[in-house]
């Protein structure tokens, strides 16, 4: 299974824009927002956690349909399904590879981009913590959505529609954690909920996603 993770990361790097693409998109969102809402740093710092989370979510959506589409086209998915490793493991590794190429760079880049949005210095740590905790859930939920739409010709928009409502709790608790942390309020609830969502999705959704892939390969 590690071989699969390494291969996917290798492919992402060689195809160019594996790490870069998500980051570039994230940067675009962050740069465009001040043009849209104005340069007032008070407003920007108030909405910065939300912008960073929405940016992470959009960057995620953008890359989801590639998780299984390429493997489906070139037949790898058929071969992986007949391989000795369980399909649930394949799904988990795919999600992990997706997280390493999107969620992880976004988390690491968050302080720099937060600076552009006048994010309060107190909030930097919370922002990174919430992204680090929440983005694995985004990748896993997205992988589930990608598994549902794997055989479809025009799956991209449908995939976004399917995944969007599933992202709501993660987004809410993630942004809330930063907002509360920056204000010095109690953070236990959003922190634990965010961690719980991530752990539960990582533990359970691979089964649902693998079931969806088996149905789609039939």
């Amino acid at each position: 299974m590690i071989a699969l993770l390494l291969r996917d990361l290798n492919l992402a790097v060689r195809a160019g824009g594996g790490f870069g693409l998500a980051l570039a998109f994230f940067l675009i969102v962050v740069v465009l927002v001040p043009f849209g809402v104005g340069p007032d740093s008070a407003i920007l710092s108030a909405i910065a956690p939300g912008i960073l989370w929405v940016g992470a979510l959009l960057a995620c959506l953008l890359s989801l349909d590639r998780i299984f589409a390429l493997d489906h086209e070139d037949g790898s998915l058929d071969l992986l399904a007949t391989a000795p490793i369980p399909l649930e493991g394949v799904v988990a590794m795919k999600a992990a590879a997706h997280w390493v190429t999107t969620g992880l760079p976004l988390t690491l880049a968050a302080p720099g981009l937060g600076m552009l949005l006048s994010l309060e210095p107190d909030a930097f740590g919370w922002q990174m913590l919430s992204l680090a905790l929440g983005t694995p859930a985004l990748s896993m939920i997205g992988t589930f959505g990608a598994a549902l739409t794997v055989g479809l010709k025009r799956g991209g928009l449908l995939l976004s529609l399917l995944v969007l409502p599933l992202y709501v709790p993660t987004l809410i608790f993630g942004a809330e954690l930063v907002a509360r942390g920056a204000d010095g309020m109690a953070t236990a609830t959003p922190l634990m909920m965010l961690a719980a969502i991530t752990l539960a999705t990582v533990a359970l959704l691979p089964f649902a996603a693998a079931a969806a892939i088996r149905i789609n390969l039939r």
Partner: peptide, 21 residues
């Protein structure tokens, strides 16, 4: 059906999250 099952869990979660938010 799989989507409905998973969606139901997330719908309940969303309800709770939205209240909190």
């Amino acid at each position: 059906s799989v989507l409905c099952l998973v969606g139901s869990v997330f719908a309940i979660l969303s309800r709770y999250a939205v209240n909190f938010w």
